[in-house]
Amino acid sequence: MRGRLALPSLVLAVFLLAGPFLFQARYAQHVLILVLLYVTLGSAWNILGGFAGQLSLGHAAFFGIGAYSAAIIASKSAASPWWGMVAGPIVVLPVALAVGWTCFRLRGPYFTLATIAVGEVVRLVALNWGSLTGGAVGVVIRPSIFSGTSKVPYYYVILVIAVGTVALCWMITRRKLGYYLLAIREDQETAESIGIDTTRYKLIALLISASLTALAGAFYANYFLFVDPSQSATVLTLALSVEIVLMAIIGGQGTVAGPVLGAILLKVSSEVFRNVFKQANLLIYGLLLIAIILFMPDGLMGGLRKWMNKRRHA
């Protein structure tokens, strides 16, 4: 196993490290950065949504808190907005705890709907608490540390975050926490009956997931240099929460590689669709989603596995 994967892994590693030099057009680099951002978001969501089976549609709130941490640090003090990458993941913890305390008592669709409500409340607070967040105007951030227009440094920052997140996911699946979460996903009552403190482990999954999402949010603020709470923005919107979930599930939730594949497929195809189909791009995107759900109910990873099995037996 180890030997068989060594060479491809090496190729992948070289590919990732050389990314910005292979793709020198800034637009291509931008798409790479977005893909890595969504790999991070999908994988972080997957810890709670995929491993523990808790379908959250409120992750945009965690992302937004991370992004606003960076923005507020930059607008209220002279400090670099990069400190948001430290502050965001910490500030998000009490919020995540409150979400967990409220929502984990709920099961299935009730949990999902409650997370939507939490997400919307956070957005409305950001919109109306003008003295802190700048309200509807949002915050324009001045770039710090990387002052030029090169995207290369941003690429490496998000690469480290994305690889770290995926590695963490992989570690979780190999450890007690991963098995406990799996047990909770498959059958919460049974998990409880064999002595797993389900609330505690769900909460741990939530805290890790929320912190990583906030970290990605703080990166986003530094990269995009603008944060605002409008419904047509990215930060804090239900549309972002849905997109994160789509990436993870289309790829194959509960697997480490699933969200990675999902993020690559959806982000790249949405950029391609935008350029090729113009106005019809979202329509094609929606049709693609429906097709995947209907024909690959276990996502790309599920489909891939099925295909490999067939080949093996053929």
Partner: peptide, 27 residues
Amino acid sequence: PVLKAPERNQILLTEGLSIVLINTALL
């Protein structure tokens, strides 16, 4: 086709349907 599938697939399917309906209207 998705009634027996996990809840998440149903949510995503109807969300996909919503995207399709809205964007068809847009076109």
